[in-house]
Simulated scan of single mutants.
Amino acid sequence: MAIFTKEQFQTIAYNKAKIKGHTTLNENRTFSQSSAKTSVFLSHSHHDKKLIAEAKTFFENLGISIYVDWADETMPQRTSGVTAQNIKGQIRKNDKFILLATNDAITSKWCNWEVGIGDTYKLANDKICILPLADNRLTWQGNEYLQIYPRIEESEYTRDYFKIIYPNKSEISLYDWLKQ
C-alpha cells in the first residue's frame, strides 16, 4: 500500500491552495453544501486539526464541499446524544464519506462509530473511502476492517493525479469517483 505521509499530504494541500491564490489554509470556514455539486462527510480525529484544514483545502480545490463537525455552528457545544444524532444525519445527507485515517482517527471511538454509520449508508453505493495518512511510511497502524474500503492514493506515475484503489485492486480517478 503506497499511502501518503502527513507531510506529503500537507505539501499537496498547500500547493493546491497556492495555485488557487490562497497561501494560508482557512480553518474557520463554515460548512456550505450549496457551493458544490458533491458533498463529503469528513470523519476525523480532533487531534488532527491541522490536517483537517488541509484536507478541506484539498477537496474544496477539487470543487467538493466538505462537512466537518466542528465547523458546523448547529452542533451542540458539549458532546451529547444530540451530537450523535446530528452526525448520523450529516453522514446520511452528504453524498460521500471519507475517513481521514490517521493513527489518532483509527483509535478514536467516534471515528469507528462514524465508519460503521458510513458503511451502512454508503458502501453499497460506492460512496465511502479512506484517506490513510501515516506519520511516516512505517507508522500507519491501520486496522484489518479498513482493508474492505477503497483508499485514496497519489499515482506513482503522474504527479498531482489521485486515484481510488479498491480492495480488488481496480482503480478510478479520485475526481471521477467524487463526481459520480
Rank of each mutant, 00 (worst) to 15 (best):
D176Q: 11
F97S: 02
L25K: 13
K127M: 07
S155N: 10
G142K: 00
T23R: 15
S35E: 11
E154F: 03
A53L: 03
L51G: 01
P132D: 05
D95Y: 05
A134F: 02
V115I: 06
G118D: 05
V115P: 01
V68R: 06
P76S: 10
N125Y: 09
K49P: 05
E73L: 11
I128H: 00
T30D: 13
P76W: 08
K18C: 06
F9M: 07
L133T: 02
F58L: 09
L133F: 01
W70C: 13
T107F: 10
E144L: 14
D48I: 02
L123N: 09
N94H: 11
S34V: 11
N61W: 09
D69Y: 03
E154I: 03
R78M: 12
L178K: 04
Y157G: 11
K49M: 11
Y161G: 02
V82D: 13
G81M: 06
V82E: 14
E54R: 12
G142L: 00
G63I: 06
K50P: 00
S65M: 03
Y14E: 13
T57V: 13
D95F: 03
L99I: 02
S35R: 14
I52F: 03
N143S: 15
K88N: 13
K169C: 08
K16Q: 12
I172E: 15
T23E: 15
Q77R: 15
D104A: 07
A53S: 10
L133E: 00
W110V: 07
A105V: 05
K179P: 01
F59S: 03
T23P: 08
I87S: 06
K169G: 05
H46D: 15
D135S: 06
A134S: 11
K96T: 06
K16I: 06
A84D: 11
L174C: 04
T107W: 07
H47Y: 14
F97Q: 03
Q33N: 12
R137W: 09
Y121C: 01
C111Y: 01
E144R: 12
N15D: 14
T158F: 09
Y166L: 04
G63V: 06
N125S: 13
T107R: 11
Q147T: 09
S43R: 06
F41C: 09
I64F: 02
N136G: 02
E154H: 07
G116P: 03
F9V: 06
I66T: 05
I3P: 00
E144N: 13
D95P: 05
P150V: 04
D119Q: 15
A101R: 01
I148T: 13
S65I: 02
R29Y: 05
P150M: 04
F31W: 15
N136Y: 02
K122M: 04
S34D: 12
Q180S: 10
L99P: 01
W140L: 06
R159C: 07
F162Y: 07
N61V: 09
L123M: 12
E73T: 11
T79I: 11
E60R: 08
N28T: 10
Y145C: 06
K109N: 08
A84F: 10
K93W: 08
H46L: 13
E27F: 13
K16H: 11
K127C: 07
A71M: 10
I152F: 04
A124E: 15
T5W: 01
Q77E: 15
I52E: 02
I12M: 04
N28F: 08
R78P: 00
A53W: 00
R92I: 14
H22F: 15
S35I: 13
S39N: 12
W177G: 07
F41D: 08
K122E: 04
E153Y: 09
K37V: 11
T11H: 14
K122W: 03
